[in-house]
Structure formats: structure tokens, C-alpha cells
């Protein structure tokens, strides 16, 4: 155990008499850094390196969340990572989180089976502006696993379909076998009031869908650029090209929302790791209205 040598014993041994101050010492505040145990109820393998956990709290109320928020998911003794909530915001009984195994903690999480327990902190961050964009056409542009944090927004919009104009969902993936949430995409695409387009960067002839970068889909998607609000999530370069393509088609930057990714550690705005200019991405993001970050977005290594 890499326990620090000088912890408990020395500090606790120091006798601590009095002086009572005028302010009573803070009662044990529930610590923002303490994970809450959740049981894994179901594990779904989505694509080769991505899987979805359905979680239920061991005790206490379910975790209500808003579309676009994330949690810090903890594997006992191993570590903690920021993971998007990908479930239905109207059905929070089960916390649904989609994870791409790319680092030591997420790779260790691939071994999770039903019955295992993980820790959860959160939910954190600013959500997609689902209520604010009511009445508008909605264009959702997702790249790769970027579809995961958008799924709650899509479910929210489709559950209140009448509140929105045209809805277009544009997805990019690396290859056909990397397409996330295929069943959802088929279901949403089957609706008469929703347009779904998927494109992949590379494919062999067995694939009958589209090939090419996701930005290609923007020119033909059915939405009114003067009316639409766009929700964009994916790798940062995909966001860059997508914002450009949306803007080229006439969607103004103040109607484009993007979800940013930075190194999230504390998730409550004091560890400093996720800073992006004057913002803590964990607290002021991850969803930003693009016109508010456009200047910073263009600065390299910021």
C-alpha cells in the first residue's frame, strides 16, 4: 500500500484542546470527493472497445441527471474517471454510463460483471440546453463515442417531439463495426419525424451506408439553418470541422453547443486540471455555447 508514512498516527496523537470559536466547527460535510457505491446490474458490450454499465445505488435515491452531464466513476482501489451519462433522463432509476476502454482504469472496468460495485460521484457539469432550444430545429452531430453524452439529449427531445422543429441526427464513426447504439439509431431512424444519417471513415463493400467524414452529412441534412440549434460532441478535431461546416451552412455560433473534453480529476472546480482559459470544463462545461469559447478554441495548447 502506498499509504503516506506520516498520516494518521502523528496528527491524531497531537492533543487538541479547546479554543471554541464563535463559529461552531463545520459538522461533517458530505465530502464531494467521496464516491457513493452503486451495483452493476447489467453490462452491454457496444463496440469493440466500448461498453455500457447499468447501475443502481446500493442505498438511497437514484441519481437524477440532466442530458450531457457526467459522473466520476470509481473502481475500488484502482482509480476514478470522468464518464458521460448515456441513459434516459426521464428514467433515472438506473444510471447508464457508456465507457470506452482507453486507459488503465477504464480497461480495468471492462472486467466488471453484474453484482460488482463501483463508486459514483456526481452528476457534474452543465447540460445540453434542451429546454432553451425548444421550438427550434435540432441538429445533433456525434463523432464516435461522442454519441454517448448526446443520447440523453436525443431521448429527451424525442420524448417531447412536439416541442421541437425538425430533428436531424448525424453520426460519424470510424468503421461500420464502430457504430455505437445501432439499435437506437435504427429505432430513431424508423421514426417518420426524425432524420438519421450515419457515415463511416472507412468501409469495405459489405457496408451499404455512407462513407466519408461526418461533416459531409451537414450539407444535406434536413434542417433550417436559420432556425436550428446544433449539439455537437466528438473528438476535438471533429468538433472543429463540424462547427465550421454548420457555420458554413448558416447556423450561427450562438446556436451551436459543443461538449468539451479535458482532464477531469476533482470534477468540482478546484483541482485545476480541466482548465480551458477561464473555465473549469467540469463546472462551467462540459457543454459550452460555441460563440462563448470560439476565441479560446482557436488557440493551440490552451
Amino acid at each position: 500500500m502506498r499509504m503516506a508514512p506520516a498520516d494518521a498516527a502523528t496528527a491524531a496523537a497531537r492533543p487538541m484542546p479547546e479554543p471554541r470559536q464563535e463559529t461552531a466547527p463545520a459538522a461533517r460535510t458530505p465530502d464531494l470527493m467521496a464516491p457513493r457505491p452503486f451495483t452493476v446490474e447489467r453490462v452491454t458490450r457496444d463496440v469493440s472497445d466500448t461498453f455500457t454499465l447499468e447501475l443502481r445505488p446500493l442505498e438511497g435515491p437514484p441519481l437524477a441527471f440532466q442530458p450531457g452531464q457526467f459522473t466520476m466513476l470509481y473502481l475500488f482501489g484502482v482509480g476514478e474517471v470522468a464518464i458521460s451519462v448515456s441513459g434516459d433522463p426521464d428514467r433515472p432509476e438506473r444510471l447508464v454510463q457508456t465507457i470506452r476502454a482507453v486507459g488503465p482504469v477504464t480497461r480495468a472496468m471492462t472486467a466488471l460483471k453484474p453484482g460488482a460495485v463501483v463508486g459514483v460521484r456526481g452528476p457534474f457539469g452543465r447540460p445540453w440546453p434542451c429546454a432553451e432550444i425548444e421550438g427550434r430545429d435540432v441538429v445533433v452531430v456525434a463523432g464516435g463515442v461522442g454519441l454517448a453524452p448526446l443520447r440523453p439529449a436525443i431521448l429527451h427531445v424525442l420524448a417531447r417531439r412536439g416541442q421541437y422543429g425538425k430533428v436531424a441526427l448525424l453520426c460519424g464513426a470510424r468503421t461500420p463495426k464502430d457504430i455505437l447504439f445501432r439499435r437506437d439509431l435504427r429505432r430513431w431512424g424508423g421514426r417518420l419525424d426524425t432524420s438519421v444519417a450515419v457515415t463511416v471513415d472507412r468501409a469495405s463493400a459489405g457496408w451499404h451506408g455512407q462513407v466519408g467524414v461526418v461533416t459531409k452529412l451537414i450539407g444535406h441534412a434536413p434542417f433550417d439553418p436559420e432556425e436550428a440549434a446544433a449539439l455537437v460532441c466528438g473528438p476535438e478535431i471533429m468538433i472543429r470541422y463540424t462547427v465550421q461546416a454548420l457555420n458554413d451552412r448558416g447556423v450561427s455560433l450562438d446556436r451551436i453547443y459543443v461538449s468539451m473534453e479535458r482532464n477531469m480529476k476533482c470534477a468540482v472546480g478546484f483541482c485545476g486540471h480541466c482548465q480551458f482559459g477561464g473555465s473549469f470544463v467540469c463546472r462551467d462545461g462540459p457543454v459550452f455555447r460555441f460563440d462563448r469559447i470560439a476565441d479560446r478554441f482557436a488557440v493551440r495548447e490552451l
Partner: peptide
């Protein structure tokens, strides 16, 4: 919709782009 493909002997053709309306 039309796919632009590269023929590869012994494999399925690789689709490099698709074009539409």
C-alpha cells in the same frame, strides 16, 4: 447513392467515399 471503391484482389473492395443526390 454511389460508392467509390478500390478493388483489392482477394478482399472486399474498399469504399473510400459515397456520393448522393
Amino acid at each position: 447513392r454511389v460508392a467509390l471503391e478500390v478493388y483489392v484482389p482477394g478482399r472486399k473492395p474498399i469504399v473510400v467515399d459515397t456520393l448522393g443526390s
